[in-house]
Write a protein that binds this DNA or RNA. Structure first.
Lengths: 316, 316
DNA sequence: TTGTATGCGTTATCAA
DNA sequence: TTGATAACGCATACAA
C-alpha cells in the first residue's frame, strides 16, 4: 500500500538502511546518493511511518492537548498560541475534547511525548499512573498536583486595576463577575475586590453576571440596569463578561472606565477603549510549552507551581 | 519503562503470545488463565502500545479532524457532536488546528484511519496524494473534489424561510449577511434571497454584516440603524450574525420575526424567539461520521456530494 | 561509503 | 490449550 524505505531502496538500487540515513541527511552518505534518494522519495510520495519510528525511538514528536470545554472563546486564542510555539519547537499538537482521563489514556496508548491539560478543577486531575508515565503540565487553578501547573495571579490582577482606578481618583466602582460559583478563581477575584475596596474606603458594589459567558452577562446586566446605574469605574472578571458589558452599554460605554481580566489580543481591535489586566496569552502559551519541552528533554517532571504575574495594559 | 506484554508474561509464567490473546478475550485461552492474566495486567498498569499495534494491524482506531478556524463558536458544537458519534463507533478523535495540508500530512504519518476536513474554500483542498492514501470526508461548500463532501442546501433554506414569511403575510423583509465576499455559501444565500423576493414581488433590502462574526454584525447594524429602521421580517445569514442582531436590538426584538441560518441547539435556550432554518448539528455530525466509517471499513471512497436538506424550526 | 543484522511491541500463523 | 516464530517499518550498531 504505502511506500516504504524498502520500495525506495529497490527503486534506487541501494539498501534500505542507506535510504534511512539519506532521508535524515546523515553525513554517512555521499551527497550525490543522498540527493538521488531524496529525489526518488519525493517522486514516490514517501510518507514516513510514525508508528514504526515511534516504536524504535520512543518518540512521536507530538504532544496532546486536553481541552474538554471547546466552547470558551477566550481559550481558543491560547490554543492557537500553544500550537504556534509547539510548531516552532518541532512538535505537532493533537487536541482531544474528551474528558481528561479518557484523553490522557489514549495519548499514552499513542505514545505521545507530552500532555497539556486545561485544568478546570477537581474533575480534571490526572491519576498518577498517567502523570508518572509521561510529562504533563496543566494550566488552571491553584492546587497541589503531581505535575507542574501554570496559573495566573488573579489576586494581583485585581489589585493592579484597583490601584490604577485610585490613581485616577475614581472611587465609585463596581465589579462584574460570576459571584455564585465554587470556581476558586472567581472566588479569589470577588474576595480580593471586596477586601481591597474596604481597606481603601472605596465606594463599591458587585454585580452577578450569573455565568461566565457574554450571553449570561448580557441578560444579567439588562435586568440589573432596569433599576440601577453603573458607576464610573468598572472591573470585569473575564473577556467574555466584558463582551457582555460592551453589548449592553453600547454607546454610553465611554462614560465609564473599564478594566477587564484576560490580556487577549482581541482588545486591541475593539472600537471601545478597554484596559486589560492579566498575563498575555503568548506568555502563558510560551510558559506551558517551555515547561513541557524541558520535562520531555530532561526526562524530569517537577511538580512545581508557576505563578505568572499579570500586567496592566492601558489603551488609547 | 512502560509495561509490555513480555513483562506480564514473565510475571504470570506464560508466553507473551498467550498474554496477547488473553487480553483480547480470545476463546483460545482458558477462562481461568485469561482471568489471571487480565488481573495481573491491570495490577501492573499495562497500557497497550498503539504504535506497535498499528504497525502490524494497519489500524490506529483514531481519526483526525482538521479545524483551522478554532474560533468560530457555531462550529464547536459540531466538533463536539462528531466526537460523540465517533466515540460510539469506537474511534478516538484527534483535532489539529494546523492548516489543512500540514495537518493531513501529519495524520498520514501517524497512520490515522480517516480524516474529516472543515472545508473553508479553495485553500483547504487536500492534494490527491493524500486523499488517495486515506479515507477523507469534507464538510463545507459545493465543489468537485476527489473525496466526498457533505454540505447544506443553502438555497432551499432561504426558500423555506421566505415561504414561511409569506404565509404569515409579512411582505416587508430584509436579509442580514456578509454581502461582499467570495465565499460561495454566502453568495448563494444573497442571490437566492434577491431572486425569490423579486419573483414574489416582496419589498426587500439587504444589509451587509461586514463579516461573519457577532462583533462585525453588531457594529454594522449599529451604524446602519442611525438612519434606517429594520422591517418586520428579518433573515440572518448565520448563528453568529443573529447573535449580533440580538445584541443590537435587545428589547425591541419582539417587534420582528427573525429567521436564522444554522440549526444549532443554542437557539432553544435563548430568551428571545428565533426561528431557525438549517440542518441540525447532530444530523451533520452523523452524516460525516457514517460516510467516513463506511469508507474506512469498505476500503472505498466515492467522491460523492451529499446535500443535506434543511428543516425549518419554528419556536414558541 | 554502503550494506547487514538486530530489536522496538504487537498480532497472527503455525507447531507442539 | 499454549508456545515459538515471522512480520509490520524503521533506526542504529556494526561488519564489510
Amino acid at each position: 500500500m504505502a511506500v516504504t524505505l524498502k520500495d525506495i531502496a529497490n527503486a534506487c538500487g541501494v539498501s534500505y538502511s542507506t535510504v534511512s540515513k539519506a532521508l535524515k541527511n546523515s553525513p554517512l552518505v555521499t551527497a550525490e546518493t543522498t540527493e538521488r534518494i531524496q529525489q526518488k522519495a519525493k517522486e514516490m510520495n514517501y510518507i514516513p511511518n510514525n508508528s514504526a519510528r515511534s516504536l524504535v525511538s520512543n518518540k512521536s514528536q507530538t504532544i496532546g492537548l486536553i481541552w474538554p470545554s471547546v466552547d470558551r472563546v477566550a481559550v481558543s486564542t491560547l490554543v492557537s498560541e500553544i500550537n504556534n510555539f509547539l510548531k516552532n519547537t518541532g512538535y505537532f499538537m493533537s487536541v482531544s475534547i474528551d474528558d481528561v482521563e479518557t484523553a490522557a489514556h489514549k495519548f499514552l496508548e499513542l505514545r505521545f511525548d507530552g500532555i497539556i491539560v486545561f485544568d478546570e478543577g477537581e474533575a480534571s486531575t490526572l491519576p498518577s499512573i498517567i502523570s508518572s508515565n509521561i510529562p504533563v503540565v496543566a494550566y488552571g487553578t491553584d492546587r497541589e498536583l503531581e505535575y507542574p501547573i501554570v496559573n495566573v495571579n488573579h489576586k494581583q490582577a485585581m489589585i493592579l486595576s484597583l490601584d490604577d482606578l485610585m490613581q485616577n481618583n475614581i472611587t465609585n466602582i463596581c465589579y462584574i463577575g460570576d459571584l455564585n460559583t465554587d470556581d476558586i478563581r472567581q472566588i479569589i477575584k470577588k474576595e480580593t475586590f471586596e477586601r481591597y475596596c474596604k481597606e481603601h474606603n472605596l465606594e463599591y458594589n458587585m454585580i452577578d453576571s450569573k455565568g461566565l459567558s457574554a450571553e449570561d452577562t448580557f441578560f444579567a446586566l439588562k435586568s440589573y440596569l432596569t433599576n440601577h446605574t453603573l458607576p464610573e469605574g468598572i472591573i470585569c472578571g473575564s473577556y467574555d463578561i466584558t463582551l457582555g458589558l460592551v453589548h449592553t452599554l453600547k454607546d454610553s460605554l465611554d462614560q465609564h472606565i473599564v478594566y477587564s481580566y484576560d490580556n487577549v489580543p482581541q482588545f486591541d481591535h475593539m472600537d471601545t477603549v478597554i484596559h486589560s489586566v492579566g498575563v498575555p496569552t503568548k506568555k502563558i502559551a510560551e510558559t506551558l510549552v517551555n515547561i513541557l519541552i524541558n520535562a520531555i528533554e530532561s526526562k524530569e517532571n517537577h511538580p512545581d507551581v508557576y505563578h505568572l504575574e499579570p500586567e496592566l495594559v492601558k489603551r488609547k
